[in-house]
């Protein structure tokens, strides 16, 4: 492989990682945009999503990389994996909001944020107790089709990840821009009290933002499994932290910012791993974050808004 091929290969890898981080970052940013809450349970909703996707695929007869599908069965199996993990994660998110965060709605201070950390531990330990701590082989039914681009290879896996992420992000974009509920969500994020005065049921909007954010975490979890061919109970922390960084980098609360931040973090991770060794990628990612926050405290696409009273 020449240097150009290597660069191209890392670009391909970085975009796939970026797709995963973007979807995960959207969950942080949607909830923050509406409630100004950093939802740390999101880390492990993502992990649970990966586990649910794995169990779903296994339930459909897949195991490891031994069963290879093609055509309609492949598409249906993958769709089922995504659908089950997204819907269940969505409901987990709604449950967390409804039963653990809503009672704290009018409590000032960090109580809600601390609660999300607690929920994160509970989810972690539930999976640890039921599925164990070992690294699991995530089923991957994709045929080993590769498209050579010069000396680099683009696998079917990457194409699938990109298409899925693009479809989900376009759908989210359509939802927030053009649907009534999506507009209510934007209005609530910009001025919750005024939105309430228009007749918006703010509690419902909050619930929907949790559902969507958590469902995207479920999709992201499935992508993690397909990309790394594994699922592990402690996978949430590293990926979640990078996705959170992506949300902050793009401007937390800003939806296009989360998408852009995710892709950037993915690319930086892959390219810096290539150039300096993978041990250095975190150093590069978090140094860049510090630099961006020093020179653009609101993130790349964020606005410095006056504090809402």
């Amino acid at each position: 492989m020449t240097a150009v091929d290597l660069f191209l290969q890392q670009l391909i890898n970085g975009l796939s990682l970026g797709a995963m981080y973007s979807l995960l970052a959207l969950g942080f940013t949607l909830v923050y945009g509406i409630m100004e809450l950093i939802n740390f349970s999101h880390f492990n909703v993502f992990m649970v999503g990966c586990m649910i996707a794995m169990l779903t695929l296994q339930a459909m007869g897949l195991s490891g990389q031994t069963v290879i599908l093609s055509g309609a069965p492949l598409v249906l199996t993958l769709l089922a994996g995504f659908a089950v993990s997204m819907v269940l994660c969505g409901f987990i998110g709604v449950g967390i909001e409804r039963f653990l965060l809503r009672p704290l709605r009018n409590v000032k201070g960090p109580a809600a944020m601390i609660t999300t950390i607690g929920v994160s531990y509970v989810l972690f330990n539930l999976v640890l107790l039921t599925l164990g701590s070992d690294s699991k082989n995530f089923p991957n039914p994709l045929p080993p089709v590769v498209f050579p681009i010069g000396g680099a290879v683009l696998r079917l896996r990457e194409v699938l990840i990109w298409i899925t992420a693009a479809v989900l992000m376009l759908a989210l974009n359509y939802f927030t821009r053009y649907t009534k509920l999506g507009k209510a969500m934007r209005a609530t994020a910009q001025d919750a009290e005024a939105a309430r005065m228009m007749g918006v049921e703010v509690d419902r909007v909050i619930m929907i933002s949790f559902f969507i954010g958590s469902a995207l975490a479920g999709a992201s979890g499935m992508i993690f499994g397909l990309y790394y061919n594994l699922a592990k109970v402690d996978m949430g922390f590293a990926a979640g932290l990078r996705a959170f960084t992506a949300a902050v980098l793009g401007g937390i609360g800003n939806v296009p910012g989360a998408m852009l931040g995710g892709v950037l973090i993915g690319l930086i991770e892959a390219l810096s791993a290539q150039a300096l060794g993978s041990a250095w990628s975190d150093v590069v990612i978090f140094s860049l974050l510090v630099l961006v926050l020093v020179f653009r405290p609101a993130g790349l696409l964020g606005r410095l808004a006056p504090n809402k009273s």
Partner: peptide, 8 residues
């Protein structure tokens, strides 16, 4: 103070 949604 009007309270429009500024980015809509």
């Amino acid at each position: 103070a009007r309270r429009l949604f500024p980015r809509m």
